[in-house]
Design a protein around this nucleic acid. Structure first.
Length: 769
DNA sequence: TCTTCCTAGGTTTTT
DNA sequence: CCTAGGAAGA
């Protein structure tokens, strides 16, 4: 233990060894945040201040939770099982499974992912004859999640306009429908837990007393409901409960769009009268010029808690800035630079190419592919979100809870078995009439539709009966076969990958069973005995003794139920990996938390980064600036920034100005690789750079653009499209279009913040930049 | 019921 | 430009 503390710097040590009071740790990028969190836990246990069961540590992603567990078990000889380390959703799921009765849920409740939730909302709109032009399903989804993220039920939402009133009404219906089906969405997991604990004093008291130390990672990303839940657990206003140890970085708050509220940091400071505020400002990742850039840039944000990163690593190299003529050339340049980095010994997977939005990756991918350079794109569909896997899961969901209508509709006619839209409509009417699930309504159906539906129900029942005593992986195997999913995809042209994914589901089940400790025993026997060993008893208000949620999930629910919630809560990896060394392509958002030797920040143009839609929201540009801060601080030794004069976006060529963020970076830390090219830059570039690449010249699309550029490059007025200019009143701009002949030419110029102007070139005094 | 055509819409993402 | 989802035809 002493060894562990020995490795810490004074700030980290202070944070790790704080007294058991609420504390806020402002942890800058690369300052050893995870180390502090894990060492704090280890220190608390090692010094006997708390047992493993008194610890709760909350993260946002499964990856972060896993990382914490791994590091902890390396530090501590203690079994980490007693500790509650997980995501908000995972921990709430655990609580709700154990206290399902008090939470008014079926024990085998199922979790809707966003896709399921949307399809359920669409169904709801249809069933209630709501005009989905006026009330789009997506808007309602957003409305409901937003309300829940703030801890509000339908009745709590203030509605002033008719549209909001309608949404509130539908929100209420949606919740009722979820309850009938025995399903909960992601936000509901948290809201239900919050309500359960607020309402149930003995339960609340039990957990308040139990968790002496609650540690929260990425606190700046918490939404209102999450903060409320934490307050409740920490006994805010009740004078009991454990110490809240919050770690976060307000400068890295980039998730406001999904409900995160940075304000929670200062609210926490105020609410809990935090006297222990520690800043971790020593950075162990990046060289000086990179940190200087980050510090300088972020200082343009208002309302910061305030912090400045420093390093012992020396100044290192300047940030290299490159202006290219087009997005195609930008991609070529990246390839050339990446090649030379690799020639100098930088491993391929230590080079990251970042962009603001996913649409930007295509051009880069295209160029990388043509150049034969291996790359990996992050993001995209996760394993459990793939259509074929979701189908298989839907069969399993129906066996576990037949009233899940989403699951029913997904597979009732997949693979096709002659149940068409008309049959479904009749069935939905019947279900509506009796207020029951689709599955339960099947017996009311007659005729051809009735027999086809009846056969489907028999299929599900048969699978359930046949597998009830089988271990989970076997169960999955049987379902894959009985559902005829495998044979169905075998007949499809592109079915091979899908079949492979389906077979992986058996492995996933096997791995799950092993990791979660679900033995071969049938869960039914486990109840009472397991109760005797696991967890404490809580006596509720009505005098009933119940077990706290410490028991392994295996004692509370069937392996199947557990596996299904695992599939919803942990969507699995997004493809990629490929194992081998590859360049890393991803959005700036997904780069958060990662680090690389060399980083390219591409597309640094007004409208892209900062994104144009950010200017519409209050503090939108501040959030973009934080995003840029995150991007910069990913780099260890070398950082590139690039922007381009013209870029193809949504099928249109756009001419953007360079990002305003260049004006917010310290000049002495930047190294401009490309002087601005005057006059006919296309002709200039052609011979000097990788432009005369045969691939580029012969490529269809590329060639078209090249022609276009050549045509446009020299207007008789002496100006050219794409050229950067300055105007006394409007400032810097980019020429987007030129009309008219030499004497009477007018130019359309994008002045960014000052807007789009059309100026007469013979009158306006423009300066070349 | 399956195919093909057409149109709308296109920051950022985890659970 | 590209993709997904809905609507009309085979």
């Amino acid at each position: 233990m002493q060894n562990l503390l020995h490795k810490l710097n004074p700030e980290q040590l202070a944070a790790v060894t704080l007294p058991p009071q609420s504390a806020l740790i402002l942890a800058g990028a690369g300052s050893g945040k995870t180390r502090v969190l894990t060492t704090r836990i280890a220190w608390l246990i090692q010094t006997g201040q708390v047992g493993p069961s008194g610890i709760m540590a909350v993260t946002f992603t499964n990856k972060a939770a896993k990382e914490m567990l791994t590091r902890l078990s390396a530090m501590l000889p203690v079994n980490t099982r007693g500790m509650w380390i997980g995501t908000f959703h995972g921990l709430c799921n655990r609580l709700l499974r154990s206290h399902y009765r008090d939470a008014a849920l079926p024990q085998a409740f199922q979790i809707l992912d966003t896709q399921d939730q949307l399809s359920m909302i669409k169904r709801l709109l249809k069933a209630n004859n709501v005009d989905d032009e006026k009330y789009p399903a997506k808007d309602l989804l957003y409305f409901i999640n937003n309300a829940k993220d703030q801890g509000l039920r339908a009745q709590d939402v203030e509605a002033h306009e008719p549209i909001t009133r309608k949404f509130v009404e539908l929100y209420e219906l949606y919740d009722q429908q979820c309850q009938r089906e025995g399903v909960v969405d992601f936000a509901e997991l948290l809201l239900r837990t919050y309500e359960l604990l607020s309402r149930n004093q003995p339960l609340r008291h039990h957990y308040q007393t139990r968790f002496r130390h609650i540690l929260v990672d990425e606190f700046q990303d918490t939404n209102d409901l999450q903060y409320k839940l934490l307050k409740l657990l920490a006994g805010y206003g009740e004078g009991q409960g454990g110490a809240l140890f919050a770690v976060g970085d307000d400068d890295q708050s980039i998730y406001a769009f999904r409900g995160a509220n940075v304000g929670n940091m200062s609210a926490f400071e105020r609410d809990f009268k935090v006297t222990n505020l520690i800043k971790l400002e020593q950075n162990y990742r990046s060289h000086g010029h990179i940190l200087d850039s980050a510090n300088y840039l972020i200082s343009y944000n208002r309302n910061r808690l305030g912090k400045n990163l420093r390093t012992d690593a020396g100044q290192g190299e300047q940030v290299r800035v490159y202006e290219s003529s087009s997005d195609l050339e930008e991609a070529q340049w990246i390839i050339e630079e990446a090649k030379s980095l690799m020639a100098d010994g930088t491993p391929r997977n230590e080079i990251a190419i970042l962009y603001r939005s996913n649409a930007q990756s295509r051009v880069i991918e295209h160029a990388l592919f043509a150049a034969g350079m291996p790359y990996t794109v992050y993001g995209g569909l996760r394993y459990f979100q793939r259509a074929e896997v979701k189908h298989a899961i839907a069969y399993l969901q129906l066996m576990d809870n037949p009233h899940n209508d989403s699951a029913f509709l997904r597979v009732v006619n997949f693979p096709t078995r002659g149940i068409g839209a008309r049959s479904i409509e009749l069935l939905q009417n019947a279900a509506e009439q009796y207020g029951i699930s689709l599955y339960a309504a099947v017996p009311y159906m007659t005729g051809k539709a009735g027999s086809a539906l009846g056969a489907f129900v028999k299929l599900v029942e048969g699978a359930r009966f046949e597998t009830q005593n089988l271990p989970l992986p076997e169960m999955v195997r049987v379902v894959l076969e009985r559902s005829t999913l495998l044979t169905h995809y075998a007949t499809e042209k592109e079915g091979a990958d899908r079949i492979e994914n389906l077979e992986q589901l058996v492995d996933a089940a096997a791995q799950f069973v092993q990791e979660e400790g679900f033995g071969q025993q049938a869960p039914a026997h486990l109840g009472p005995q397991a109760a005797a060993v696991a967890g404490e008893q809580i006596v509720t208000e009505d005098g009933v003794a119940i077990l706290d949620a410490d028991a392994p999930l295996a004692t509370v629910m069937s392996p199947l139920s557990a596996f299904l919630s695992h599939a919803s809560l942990e969507a699995g990896d997004a493809q990629a990996q490929a194992g081998q060394e590859a360049l890393q392509l991803m959005t700036v958002h997904s780069a958060k938390g990662l680090e690389f030797d060399a980083v390219f920040i591409t597309g640094m143009e007004e409208g892209l980064f900062p994104h144009e839609s950010s200017s519409r929201e209050a503090d939108g540009v501040d959030e973009e600036r934080r995003l840029m801060y995150v991007a910069i601080t990913r780099a260890r030794r070398r950082l590139y920034m690039s922007f381009t004069q013209q870029r193809m976006l949504h099928g249109q060529t756009r001419f953007n100005m360079k990002s305003r963020f260049f004006d917010e970076l310290p000049e002495e830390s930047l190294k401009w690789l490309s002087p601005r090219v005057q006059g006919n830059w296309f002709a200039n570039r052609k011979s000097t750079t990788a432009w005369d690449d045969a691939e580029f010249r012969n490529g269809g699309v590329d060639n078209k653009i090249a022609k276009q550029i050549t045509q446009k490059s020299g207007h008789s007025s002496g100006w050219r499209i794409g050229e950067s200019v300055a105007h006394a009143k409007f400032g810097e701009g980019v020429i987007v279009n030129i009309e008219g002949g030499a004497g009477a030419a007018r130019a359309q110029i994008n002045f960014g913040a000052a807007g789009m102007k059309v100026l007469d070139l013979s009158v306006a005094k423009l300066e070349r930049l």
